[in-house]
Design a protein around this nucleic acid. Structure first.
Lengths: 138, 138
DNA sequence: TTATAATTTATAATGATTCTAAAGTAGTGT
DNA sequence: ACACTACTTTAGAATCATTATAAATTATAA
């Protein structure tokens, strides 16, 4: 019934005060079996549909950014127009359906380890991001 | 001396009128041995440094976009803040130095072919983009 | 309960990109 | 050379997502 306590703990443990707004967003983002992808706009629209007191846009931005900073969310920037947040923060890659703009997780085992044969002196690899654009094959 | 004729031909052959502005931008972008990467802002600043009549910002945007549409440039969108254009339009990947924000080409042979083991019914792969973020190693 | 620091909020500000419509230019035909 | 048309350039306005501001509210610890 009241699994808010989990979120309250989660928030408090990372130094974020468990406010109504943050808890509500936690429930929306993390209270589900599958990970999912959303834009700020998606989140904002979904929150508007609920008949609860509205959360201001500024708070939505603040919350998503602090969740990202705390490692609860990963950002996948597609281009200037599209930036997704992903509740799956593990190391993984994505399909982007260019017909629907849907972002789809690729499991680690779906992509053979990417080998980079070049390296630059004084530099090391921080991350490798693979984006596979897919389209209708009709 | 006057290798503008090449650019004039190039432009005309793709249905773009060879205007002063387009030729000047062509020279800046394509009259070099190595391919290179730039943002609209970089290009705009470089053009400002030349003591010739300034090209308006709108024209810079228009030109870069039409060059992209004609296949002379490839866009590499890093995130909302950074979008690079690449004079190397072949199929290749990139290093992004997160300390300097420099984008560096990876040759085809620098990255082992990326194998995707998942496929979705009714969908086919359009492109595979690999971005390798690198940082100072010390 | 009170003091405080953190948070939320509505609204304003920002800044990159796109739009607009008027002026300028290239290409074509005469 | 001239004129016509369509294309291009231009300055400035408009747009729109995001960030900043500063006042009101709330969580927390004393």
């Amino acid at each position: 019934m009241d699994n808010n306590t989990d979120f309250i703990e989660k928030l408090r443990s990372s130094g974020l005060r468990p406010t109504k707004q943050r808890i509500r967003i936690c429930k929306l983002l993390f209270d589900r079996k599958k990970t999912f992808h959303f834009t700020i706009n998606d989140l904002s629209k979904t929150l508007k549909k609920e008949n609860i007191k509205q959360i201001s846009l500024a708070t939505i931005y603040n919350t998503v950014h602090s969740f990202k900073k705390k490692g609860y969310l990963k950002e996948i920037s597609i281009n200037r127009e599209m930036s997704y947040f992903d509740t799956n923060t593990s190391d993984h890659h994505h399909f982007l359906d260019i017909n629907t703009n849907q972002l789809i997780d690729l499991k680690k085992e779906d992509v053979e380890k990417v080998r980079i044969k070049k390296n630059l002196p004084g530099k090391k690899i921080n991350s490798i991001e693979v984006l596979v654009k897919i389209e209708n094959s009709n």
